[in-house]
């Protein structure tokens, strides 16, 4: 703000006054719904999860084994050369302990969130997932080895949630 300006526009109001109708307002809740086709590569991924496998994609030009899989290599800008199963073990690249839900409301039991670099994929190919079977989040360490815990096969639907969570490979 310039020292030449003496008038600062904007009228501050309280949220509660808007919500309770003391300030004129209009309400609306959109009811748009979506159904996303998973696409060429991610269909392979979801079908793999249903069978208890994590599917990656390979590019011979750059030599990467990529997860999540993709139909084309974004670096070489060519179709991938194929799809391979990679391991369901990996290493914690980074993690967080979330006490906040999507609507910013608070949750008591924290969600343990991590990026896990999967074994058998190229270096740094992490996926986002949840950690479990950990009593105290302070037991989580960078570089800790973890393994996927799968839902029973009859309960799998072809979803990232077919993996319930990743647990420490060794007892903590």
């Amino acid at each position: 703000m310039s020292e030449k300006i003496k008038h600062f526009p904007g009228e501050q109001v309280k949220n509660i006054d808007v919500k309770e109708g003391r300030i004129p307002a209009v309400r609306h809740r959109p009811n748009a719904k979506y159904l996303w086709s998973a696409g060429i590569a991610m269909s392979r991924f979801l079908e793999g999860l249903k069978k208890g496998k994590i599917v990656g994609a390979t590019c011979k030009k750059c030599g990467r084994i990529m997860v999540p899989p993709r139909a084309f290599c974004e670096q070489c800008f060519k179709p991938v050369d194929g799809y391979v199963n990679i391991k369901d073990t990996g290493t914690i690249n980074t993690y967080s302990v979330s006490y906040v839900a999507g609507d910013a409301s608070r949750i008591k039991e924290p969600i343990l969130v991590a990026i896990i670099d999967l074994d058998g994929a190229s270096e740094g190919m992490g996926i986002l997932h949840i950690l479990g079977e950990i009593d105290d989040w302070k037991q989580i360490k960078f570089g800790m080895k973890v393994k996927a815990v799968w839902k029973p096969s009859e309960e799998r639907t072809g979803s990232i949630k077919d993996i319930k969570y990743f647990r420490p490979l060794q007892e903590v």
């Binding site: 906040v100 999507g102 969600i111 990026i115 960078f142 990232i160």
Partner: peptide, 25 residues
């Protein structure tokens, strides 16, 4: 991403916390 990220319940604050923690580490 609706296919593999949203079903996990990902929120904006998760990704910053993950990045901040990695930077600190």
């Amino acid at each position: 991403d609706p296919i593999y990220a949203r079903p996990l319940g990902v929120t904006l604050i998760w990704i910053f916390a993950l990045e901040m923690h990695r930077y600190m580490h």
